[in-house]
Design a protein around this nucleic acid. Structure first.
Length: 797
RNA sequence: GCCCGGAUGGUGAAAUGGUAGACACAGGGGACUUAAAAUCCCUUGCUCGGAAGAGCGUGUGGGUUCGAGUCCCACUCUGGGCACCA
């Protein structure tokens, strides 16, 4: 979209261009995608069904419109993402960013919060990703209770009594949510978020000095990002409203403050502040001279050091609750508040509803008509898709509306009653399309329905989903949410879309920067200026430094698959990428490493070429081999161990050790090859087996090479149609174990013992070692630890 | 700031609580060659030592254990995410 705006060209041809490049590159390295199922999510044949799912959500009460803030750049006249704002200013235009409230569409993902947490236990995903989702959803159990505004302020030393007004004319109340209701007797103030709805009413009832201060504070808070507001390192800011509220637990009056560390979007947008037992409240109280009161102690009779935030303790200074444990008091106070109708126990989630509206051109139109009486109407299913019209330019309107709003032919339409209505002009963010595309892959060209249920039942769930960890909490959560909704609607047989998840790393390239010259300014968070490799070569080395960075066109550090394949070959590129680092780690691109992969493949070619003239095609029929010499026998053992390890490693995505296993086997095979004699029947058979299996084992990594070698052995067809080798468990073991002999945990010797030797045998053999003896001399053996097949450790003193 | 990862030789890395550095890359030495490339062989964590050997060593500081790269606590640095990049 940004490129479309900049170059004033339609996004669709760009999509085709980029897609063609991806496809060409994947084909080039021999990746076996089933391209026959590919489709474009930007085509009406696809997004028609995205709209259909939107309507499903709407009918199920899971799509709604409400006023929500956007970041507004008054100079560029556009809506900004949080990341495009730095220090309250627009990254591009430098304008001070304003908050604007416009009606926007949301999906009610919060209705599914608990299920999204619970079902994480049923899927095979990296633990880190699961933790991120749990924390993002952020369940907390607590109590929500009502605070009455009123009374005279008595507990705020900075305010003169005559500045306060009595606020009991109309009863104003607000709710607070807390996970620590046990500390309620320690409340010495409360805080409303600057955006809190009640502030307008409160300000009407306080004097002008306080009201003005609050309004100024609200304006300042508008300009800050959420991340900045929550930074605990920042000095706490806030203003006293001039009003007080009543603590329902003890009837005390506490001052109401406004501070930006309380967010309108979480909980109720208001908190009870207990500085004695919360770090942020404590810091705030210190800054503004608010009293701090201890109500929890680590144990009865022990004075707590404030702030004391631990949850194991007992209540003090808490009326009839004093002496109770934190857990008991939480239950008792919750019950008491519920009984009196003051509040209720509640589960609160940090997760917010999913804002789907974009005031953008390049997205799936939201299939809604605003009727003549301004009521919301879904576009009837048989009128879908609402197609994206052609526009002249892709910039948003001056008022922040989508470019679609400028097209009367699109906007003006008959509503369901045949009167003049207008279409919704927001589009859906791209996460909508990616939340169900995996279902469409099951049945990509169905014109009658989004998918055929039988086909979805056949394919789903996705057995293994591979993607970057950066999708941990957004895409992966949205996709799970939609799958559950579709399951509830009886349209999808599974509740989780992706049974197993694997994260892949990225390829980083060494990228030159130079130090800034005097007076030169740098971007935020940067410490150097990106330069070209040519410039780096020309410059004095002292000014230049290199850094591993993601490959990107703008950095000029891209190594394309075309270049790599041109220089080293597709198989070498594949082997290198698999071998160089674990699958989920980032790769630092190196030409030397590529050379190593080339060498490895060449050595496989050499071994296979050497063996080919003697190749015994029917080696399998001669099994079990008789008359095996020692070399042939150990070759077979190494082979069968390698077959086992390769299979295990591929299963668990440990591709780097899969390749190294084959390298190791190749080393063994070439070493033993020195003693290869064509008339040694055992060796001929063992090498025939070894070479044929090696080709099949390397085939997933280097399919082009494997297929060629396969044919040189006289085998038919392609390796991907051949059967993966199986290992003989009796062969895939060592005859002898190397036993580590330790004295007090320090390695003193290693001894070879036949596999399966008993504990006494191992201990005796270890004790017999002269090197061990030297360290046992004059000492008393206190304990002997024997780990069969591994080690013997003498604990002496 | 908050949430989730990561840190091991000159480099990329390996290691169900049990011989740290597998497998590679780079380096050093050698063979082959008129020469170079390629290939092959030997060697390579650090310190002391001629060697045998000894000591040290997995970001830092503590702890658990017969034994810790691995588990626990506290930190440092670094990557990802933080809801309109997708």
């Amino acid at each position: 979209e940004n490129e479309a705006i900049k170059t004033k060209t339609h996004p669709a041809p760009m999509i085709d261009r980029y897609a063609a490049t991806y496809k060409r590159q994947m084909d080039l390295v021999g990746i076996s995608y089933d391209w026959s199922r590919s489709f474009k999510s930007s085509e009406p044949t696809f997004y028609r069904w995205t709209q259909w799912i939107f309507e499903l959500l709407y009918k199920r009460g899971l799509a709604y419109r409400k006023l929500a803030a956007v970041n507004w750049d008054p100079v560029d006249k556009t809506v900004l993402a949080d990341e495009e704002i730095i220090g309250g200013r627009a990254e591009r235009s430098g304008a001070i960013v304003e908050k604007r409230y416009i009606p926007q569409w949301f999906f009610k993902i919060t209705d599914y919060a608990q299920r999204l947490i619970d079902d994480l236990d049923t899927i095979d995903w990296p633990e880190g990703i699961k933790s991120q989702q749990r924390n993002w959803i952020g369940r907390s159990d607590g109590v929500q209770f009502r605070m009455k505004v009123g009374g005279r302020g008595t507990s705020t030393p900075k305010v003169e009594e005559d500045e306060l007004e009595i606020l009991s004319k109309h009863e104003l109340t607000f709710d607070v949510f807390t996970t620590r209701v046990d500390t309620v007797f320690g409340m010495t103030f409360c805080v409303l978020a600057p955006e809190h709805k009640l502030l307008g009413s409160i300000l009407k009832q306080v004097d002008e000095v306080h009201a003005t201060a609050v309004r100024e504070y609200q304006a300042a808070a508008q300009r800050m990002s959420e991340t900045d507001r929550l930074a605990t390192t920042r000095e706490k800011t806030g203003v006293f409203t001039g009003a007080c509220a009543i603590n329902p637990a003890n009837g005390e009056e506490v001052p109401i403050w406004v501070a930006d560390y309380v967010l309108a979007t979480y909980g109720t947008g208001a908190i009870m502040a207990v500085p004695g037992h919360d770090d942020r409240d404590f810091e705030f109280a210190q800054t503004f001279g608010i009293p701090v009161r201890a109500v929890i102690a680590p144990a009865a009779g022990v004075e707590p050091e404030l702030p004391f935030v631990a949850k194991d303790g007992v209540l003090i200074n808490s009326g009839e609750y004093s002496g109770m444990s934190v857990a008991d008091a939480q239950a008792a106070l919750g019950e008491w508040m519920e009984a009196l109708g003051l509040g209720e126990r509640k589960v609160q989630y940090k997760l917010r509803d999913w804002l789907i509206s974009r005031q953008r051109y390049w997205g799936c139109p939201i299939p809604v008509i605003h009727g003549a009486d301004d009521e919301l109407q879904l576009v009837p299913e048989n009128c879908l898709p609402v197609e994206l019209p052609e526009v002249d330019d892709y910039e948003p309107g001056d008022d922040g509306s989508s470019p679609l709003a400028r097209i009367p032919e699109f906007v003006n339409t008959a509503d369901l009653d045949g009167r003049l209505g207008h279409r919704e002009t927001d589009t859906m963010g791209g996460f909508a399309c990616s939340s169900w595309y995996f279902l469409r892959f099951c049945d990509p060209f169905n014109d009658d329905e989004a998918w055929d249920q039988e086909k979805v039942a056949y394919w789903m769930p996705v057995d293994c989903y591979v993607g970057g960890a950066e999708h941990a909490v957004m895409h992966l959560l949205y996709a799970r949410f939609w799958t559950k909704v579709l399951f509830d609607a009886g349209l999808c047989p599974v509740t989780e879309p992706f049974s197993r998840l694997e994260n892949q790393g990225q390829v980083l390239a060494n990228t030159p920067y130079r130090k800034p010259r005097e007076g030169e300014s740098l971007g935020v968070g940067e410490d150097g200026i990106l330069i070209s490799f040519k410039e780096a070569a020309d410059l004095d080395g002292a000014d230049v430094f290199y850094r591993w960075a993601r490959m990107s066109k703008s950095k000029g550090n891209v190594v394309t698959p075309e270049e790599a394949v041109e220089h080293y070959g597709a198989d070498a590129l594949r082997v290198y990428e698999l071998f160089v680092a674990p699958f989920d780690a980032d790769i630092q691109w190196s030409n030397e490493g590529m050379q190593g992969a080339v060498r490895f493949l060449s050595r496989i070619f050499k071994l296979c070429s050497d063996v080919a003239p003697h190749f015994h095609a029917e080696w399998r029929d001669v099994l079990p081999f008789e008359e095996l010499g020692e070399d042939a026998a150990s070759l077979r053992r190494e082979l069968h161990k390698a077959i086992r390890k390769c299979g295990e490693d591929i299963e668990k995505f440990a591709f780097n050790t899969y390749i190294s296993t084959l390298m190791k086997f190749l080393n063994t095979a070439t070493e033993l090859q020195r003693r290869f004699k064509p008339d040694d029947r055992g060796m001929v058979l063992a090498y025939s087996e070894a070479v044929e299996c090696l080709i099949l084992l390397i085939a997933p990594a280097a399919p082009h090479s494997a297929d060629e070698l396969w044919q040189r052995l006289g085998r038919e067809g392609f390796t991907f149609n051949a059967t993966w080798p199986t290992f003989d468990p009796k062969l895939a073991v060592d005859l002898a174990d190397t036993i580590a002999c330790q004295v007090n945990g320090k390695l003193r010797d290693t001894i070879e013992m036949p596999a399966g030797a008993g504990n006494e045998e191992l201990e005796a053999a270890a004790k017999a070692s002269p090197k061990v003896q030297a360290h046992l001399e004059g000492k008393t053996i206190r304990k002997v630890i024997v780990v069969p097949g591994k080690l013997v450790n003498f604990v002496v003193s």
